[in-house]
Design a binder for these strands. Structure first.
Length: 560
RNA sequence: UGGCUGAUGGUGUAAUGGUAACACAGAAGUUUUUGGUACUUUUAUUCGAGGUUCGAGCCCUCGUCGGCCAACCA
């Protein structure tokens, strides 16, 4: 442990899983070894909830000198695909983590098959010919014990032969399953002779057509942990009832005793977190894809402009506990602002332009004005911005009938404001079209008020961003809002699709300062006074496209 | 209804049985050529009823409320 680690350990209280690991370490369990795993099923893209799990698992290993395996839980070939495998690997790496080993539950299909035979030989598993409906019915209810059937008493030899027949493709899908023989009256429904293997004549993304029987989660996950000698197998709360089965398999099979611990999954306001629902959003065209910037997926957040650092910070702040939680989306926004404030270059872009003519500025003159790239980071240096007679400023920075000067720092008839890194201007007149829409402001500039060499003695409270009309580049800007209107989607009634926010995406044409022509995809900027933006993957040299990651905190909005 | 599990400011997370704290959000202010940032101040908390104890957020009992479980999904 370095001094910094110790300091951090002293400052930050341990979560309950870290306490368990430390107790295990103290007790000398597993020879001081800590091995965790992140076990996604490759049937969808990773989301911010997975990030919580990734940070926990990899973070634990980091902290205690252990390692983390990436293991794809690919036991259901009909929903799984290599596209998902690739995206998951890319997302984990992007978040900043490197796994010790890349494994697949399908790597263990032979071993698992033999373990099943072992269970049969011990009289602890049997082949059941019942239909799914019959099995469900025979399971009873939480208040009534299940009833058995004649298959439960098959001989070991018969079970062995039948299971081999299943494996060899002698039986049709759905006609036979392998079940554990545990207790049909168990209060825990999962112990009422759970299914271990089912027949599926499906092509598997890794094993191809080698198998037509596939293990269920409960017969694959714990054993995979055990095979890898995972010390701490961390999962979410809905698996608590599975722990009895997890331990049962390990005990009856006499294999390495990995231990399962559960924590509460992440829920966030104004979004959904189930892969099933996210897939629906994609398939039903509500979003442009898994990486739509409105999606809570890692790829969506990345495209939106969130940074790995901000997501890790978020996961750190939300903590780990065992009760249900609903985290405000604005906490994630806080984290990304915090990071981007230090990192992002400031540039000027006008999202909703209104033209300003500086009537006392020479017509064919252009000045290059120096402006800092990031006031939070002097090393970021300065750049030159062209200034000329015709400019764009933000429409909302002018009011025909503004509130009193104590409240309003921007332009209005007769009012003065500073143009960022340029001059103080005063508005004298404005032009309206037939519809009463303001099209143009006529202003004068104060020649000796230039930034850095201001001798005017004039004090103004407001500073406005601007771009020079003749030098500006047009760009598409995509403004995002919450994907769902309901704060808590778990309590929203009816179809979840009915709650989609119709205004979650708004496109507008903005004018941006010339240096943005060289922006790289994914690069984060702060558009001064407007928020953090990054260049979208749809962007081309001919057409710039920016995503708004998040707005700046806006205390003026509250005054209004 | 059976089992499992949980309950601490608005939100989230802390607190060997010994002064309930931290962050975000909220409010007020200072600084500021971003109504940003930074800084200062501030509001607000142990689900209920009993019990054990000198002392309970923590232990016990009984409630109340929430989550999960009756997929050939994970």
């Amino acid at each position: 442990m370095t001094i910094e680690d110790k300091k951090e350990a002293a400052e930050k209280p341990l979560n309950f899983i870290e306490k368990i690991v430390e107790e295990d370490l103290r007790a000398g369990k597993n020879g001081g070894r800590v091995l965790t795993r992140f076990p996604p099923e490759p049937n969808g893209y990773l989301h911010i909830g997975h990030a919580k799990s990734i940070c926990l698992n990899f973070g634990l290993a980091n902290r205690y000198g252990g390692q983390t395996n990436l293991r794809f839980d690919d036991t259901n070939p009909v929903t799984e695909d290599t596209e998902y495998v690739e995206s998951i690997k890319a997302d984990v790496r992007w978040l900043g983590f490197e796994w010790a080993n890349e494994f697949y539950a399908s790597d263990y299909f032979d071993t698992l098959y033999n373990l099943a035979i072992d269970l049969i030989k011990k009289g602890l598993a049997y082949v059941d010919d019942s239909t799914a409906a019959q099995i469900a019915e025979q399971k009873g209810t939480p208040t009534e014990p299940g009833t058995g059937n004649e298959y439960r008493n098959r001989s070991i030899e018969e079970n062995l032969a039948l299971f081999e027949g299943m494996r060899n493709g002698q039986f049709a899908e759905g006609t036979k399953v392998l079940r554990a023989k545990i207790d049909l009256a168990a209060p825990n429904m999962l112990l009422r002779d759970p299914l271990l293997y089912r027949i599926k004549f499906a092509h598997h993304h890794r094993t191809g057509n080698k198998w037509c029987v596939y293990p269920m989660y409960d017969f694959a996950h714990g054993q995979s942990d055990s095979i890898e000698k995972i010390t701490h197998s961390i999962c979410t709360l809905e698996f608590v009832p599975h722990r009895d089965l997890y331990d049962w398999c390990i005990e009856k099979l006499g294999i390495f005793p990995s231990k399962q611990y559960e924590f509460a999954r992440l829920n966030m306001t104004h979004t959904v977190m189930s892969k099933r629902k996210l897939l629906q959003l994609v398939n039903e065209g509500f979003v442009s894809g898994w990486d739509d910037p409105r999606m809570p997926t890692i790829s969506g957040l990345r495209r939106r402009g969130f940074t790995p650092e901000s997501i890790r910070e978020f996961c750190d702040r939300i903590g780990i506990a065992r009760h249900e939680n609903l985290i405000s989306f604005s906490l994630l926004e806080f984290c990304v602002r915090e990071h981007l404030n230090k990192k992002a270059r400031r540039v000027m872009a006008v999202l909703d332009p209104i033209k300003v003519i500086i009537t006392n500025y020479p017509e064919n003159q252009t000045e290059l004005l120096s402006t800092e790239n990031n006031p939070e980071d002097p090393e970021a240096g300065v750049r030159q911005v062209p200034f000329s007679r015709e400019l764009y400023i933000e429409r909302e920075d002018f009011m025909e009938n503004p509130p009193p000067p104590k409240k309003w720092f921007r332009l209005g008839p007769g009012l003065m404001a500073r143009l960022k890194s340029a001059y103080i201007i005063q508005c004298h007149d404005f032009v309206k079209d037939q519809n009463g829409h303001i099209t143009e402001l006529h202003c004068t500039y104060v020649a000796n008020s230039k930034s850095g060499q201001d001798e005017s003695g004039i004090v103004v409270k407001g500073t406005l961003h601007w771009v020079s009309v003749q030098h500006a580049h047009a760009a598409e800007v995509r403004l995002y809002d919450r994907l769902f209107k309901a704060e808590d989607m778990s309590q929203a009634e009816g179809n979840f699709q009915d709650h989609i926010n119709p205004e979650s995406l708004q496109r507008t044409t903005a004018f941006v300062e010339p240096c943005l022509a060289e922006a790289q995809i994914g690069q984060n900027y702060q558009f001064v006074r407007k928020g953090y933006f990054c260049l979208d993957t749809d962007s081309t040299p001919q057409k710039l496209v920016f995503n708004r990651t998040v707005t700046l905190k806006d205390s003026w909005a509250k005054v209004k």
